[in-house]
Write a protein that binds this DNA or RNA. Structure first.
Lengths: 223, 223
DNA sequence: CGCCGGTACCGGGCTAACCCTCAGCCGACC
DNA sequence: GGTCGGCTGAGGGTTAGCCCGGTACCGGCG
């Protein structure tokens, strides 16, 4: 199996190279950025490319764009995204071009080296490999494409004030409502945001986070 | 040069092992958590230990605690922290025990393998190695008023989880504490953030907002 | 040695914020 | 007219999260 590895973090890349060569694979090229990756793929026949999404120069989605280009230009080449981030929409973008010879794994969730090598082989052989937590988030995301879209105007008013750190009483005073009405709106917006009652969650904070994330789309790309 | 490597991310650890062995170093032990690290240091004479701060089981500062223990128990052993996060206060904690045979580097900023190996050798030989951006942030932190600056490490851990929308119970479970302890930390951090009890405020949300607004909070959060 | 801050955690008390069911009014739409 | 969703809000019940005072241990420091 011939592999190309595109990853700008040199220590991490060295690790992947080592694991694969120890397993008998041939690493035909290494790249630290997207242009180098594309040039390597043109020059070196390979079975699979392991690609990090965020690479220089922009550190945004250079790797993803390159992965898509690879799939278009080299139909026989498997592409495995190996990302530090749980980014379902990126996984979806990759899979739009077909669910064969593709993969999306999370760096932190690779705990068994043999499994990792097996996953790479599977993608090289035309299979699909995708981290279960990505699938779970994909499913969740289908239900609420835009979390705030389903809220009524009043619910949004209430949530905005919650997101300022206001108590229910203060929200009521500000909107000239009864505290009971605020509670009713809060309860309704929890349901619409898909926030179920669990022992592990503070739903008010989760609702506020949803609001803040929606108001600032750039925050979704952070970290 | 004999090296011990403590890092729970297996691919990354493999990378570090490869780079060092390729450079002629001897990796005498590998560890995926702090207790294994301490046991390895007791069993295998080494010149330097490369340690990740956040490791199992708590994923908080187990690595840092272990690093400090190493420095106390093995005076001749150099300790190089290799962290994914820019955490100046942790760097300071490490250096409090002396500025010899110590190092603090960021994973993402290791761009040259030979420099990395040279840095490891420097620490093994009793030198000090510290990433320039850590120094800059140390200096910058002095200039800016960061509301989180007055929080203890534990309080910051608790607040980070609150900011994920976790309940006190979930925070307790995650950090292996009693819910009562979490309450105590929450109460303490409210005071330090200057959040007084008023009828108009939801202080938990305000604390979360302070966390989200502070300088580079992501650098302080695991995962 | 005593003091201090950090960490951990207890018992006990209180309430804001949640839950539920129910109800009324309004305007839009069929 | 009847239905629907949005808005408003009541009564009643529960509890997570806050409060307080207190204890205990540890390491660092004077």
């Amino acid at each position: 199996m011939r592999v190309i590895i595109a990853e700008d973090a040199v220590l991490f890349r060295a690790g992947v190279v080592r694991v694969l060569t120890d397993a008998g694979c041939t690493v035909v090229a290494e790249a630290g950025d997207a242009p180098t990756l594309l040039a390597a793929a043109a020059r070196h026949p390979a079975d699979v490319a392991i690609v990090d999404i965020r690479m220089p120069p922009t550190h945004t989605i250079e790797g993803l764009d390159a992965a898509r280009a690879l799939r278009a230009e080299h139909p026989g080449l498997g592409v495995l995204i190996l990302s530090a981030y749980l980014e379902p929409h990126y996984a979806m973008t990759l899979l739009e071009h077909g669910v064969r010879a593709a993969g999306y794994l999370l760096k932190d969730r690779v705990t068994d080296l043999e499994e990792f090598v097996a996953a790479v082989r599977r993608v090289a052989a035309g299979g699909l490999v995708i981290d279960p937590s990505v699938v779970a988030q994909l499913l969740g995301r289908r239900r609420r494409r835009d979390p705030l879209a389903g809220l009524t105007g009043r619910e949004r008013d209430v949530l905005a004030l919650m997101a300022e750190g206001r108590s229910n009483q203060a929200v009521a005073a500000r909107l000239h409502l009864s505290p009971k009405t605020v509670e009713a709106h809060v309860r309704s917006l929890f349901g619409k945001l898909g926030l179920e009652e669990t022992a592990d969650d503070n739903r008010r904070v989760l609702a506020v986070l949803a609001f803040l994330r929606s108001a600032d789309p750039a925050a979704q790309v952070a970290s």
